[in-house]
Design a protein around this nucleic acid. Structure first.
Length: 104
DNA sequence: GACATGACACACG
DNA sequence: ACGTGTGCCATGT
């Protein structure tokens, strides 16, 4: 039967990431929780690593607003965020201003 | 199945 | 604020 509902953990997480508004950020843990996997923060990161370019992976950062990606990838994430108006201080983002919380 | 890895999160000091 | 140890869990070997 042709049914296209998200079954896997990663499909659910990608769907969550897609709803992060432009100019906002959220955390790996929050993505996991919103997707229904409260202990899946690491899997959220893993899934972004393998996701295609159609996913705003740069809007997902670590708890406390810290950019966890290292090297060239981290630089690219910062550039993408600033291009959307998110201010990044070193490796930090002010979640009070740019943090997004998923509503029920 | 065991072991290692990783874009996490949390508790400590 | 920062480093370390522990718990967590999908993937790859």
């Amino acid at each position: 039967m042709p049914n296209e509902k998200p079954n896997g953990m990663f499909d659910a997480m990608r769907a969550v990431v897609r709803r992060i508004p432009k100019g906002k950020v959220t955390t790996y843990g929050d993505v996991a929780i919103a997707a229904g996997f409260p202990t899946g923060a690491r899997q959220a990161a893993w899934c972004l690593k393998g996701a295609g370019p159609f996913l705003p992976w740069h809007r997902v950062i670590g708890k406390g607003g810290k950019i966890l990606l290292r090297g060239a990838n981290g630089v690219e994430q910062v550039q993408r965020l600033e291009a959307e108006g998110v201010k990044v201080h070193g490796t930090r983002v002010d979640l009070k201003r740019f943090g997004h919380t998923f509503r029920c």
